[in-house]
Simulated assay, not measured.
Amino acid sequence: MLIHKGSKLLMIGDSVTDAERKRPVGEGRGEDIGKSYVAIVNALLNSACPEEQIRVINMGVSGNTSRDLVQRFQTDVLDLNPDWLTIMIGINDIWRQFDAPLRPEVHVYPEEYEANLNHMLELVKGKVKQTVLMTPVFMERNRQDEMRAALDTYIAIMKKTAERHNAMFIDVQSAYEQVLEHMHPMNIAWDRVHPNMTGHMIIARSFLKAVGFHW
Results as ranks from 00 to 15, higher is better:
Pro195Ser: 03
Arg192Met: 12
Gln71Met: 09
Phe207Pro: 04
Arg55Pro: 13
Leu151His: 01
Arg141Ala: 01
Gln130Asp: 04
Glu181Asn: 04
Glu140His: 00
Ile188Tyr: 07
Thr131Ile: 08
Phe138Cys: 02
Thr65Tyr: 10
Ile87Tyr: 06
Val25Met: 14
Asn64Glu: 07
Lys8Asn: 11
Asp152Met: 06
Pro82Phe: 15
Ile157Asp: 01
Ile170Asp: 05
Asp14Gly: 01
Leu9Thr: 00
Arg103Trp: 04
Val70Tyr: 02
Phe169Glu: 01
Met168Ile: 01
Pro136Asp: 03
Glu112Lys: 08
Gly26Asp: 11
His194Lys: 08
His4Gly: 13
Lys159Glu: 15
Ser47Phe: 02
Val137Lys: 00
Ser47Gln: 08
Gly199Glu: 01
Asp152His: 09
His194Gly: 03
Leu121Tyr: 13
Asp152Thr: 10
Ser62Leu: 04
His214Glu: 15
Arg55Ala: 14
Gly26Phe: 11
Ser36Trp: 12
Val41Arg: 10
Pro101Ile: 00
Leu123Ala: 15
Glu122Cys: 12
Lys209Cys: 06
Val70Asp: 02
Glu105Ile: 01
Val70Leu: 11
Asp145Val: 03
Lys22Trp: 12
Leu2Cys: 03
Met168Val: 02
Ile155Thr: 12
Val70Lys: 04
Gly90Asn: 11
Gly126Leu: 09
His200Arg: 07
Phe169Met: 07
Leu69Cys: 09
Arg205His: 08
Gln130Gly: 08
Leu133Trp: 04
Leu151Val: 03
Val61Glu: 06
Asp79Pro: 10
Asn187Lys: 07
Leu80Ile: 14
Ala210Cys: 04
Leu9Arg: 07
Ile89Ser: 05
Trp215His: 09
Thr65Trp: 05
Ala115Trp: 02
Tyr113Cys: 09
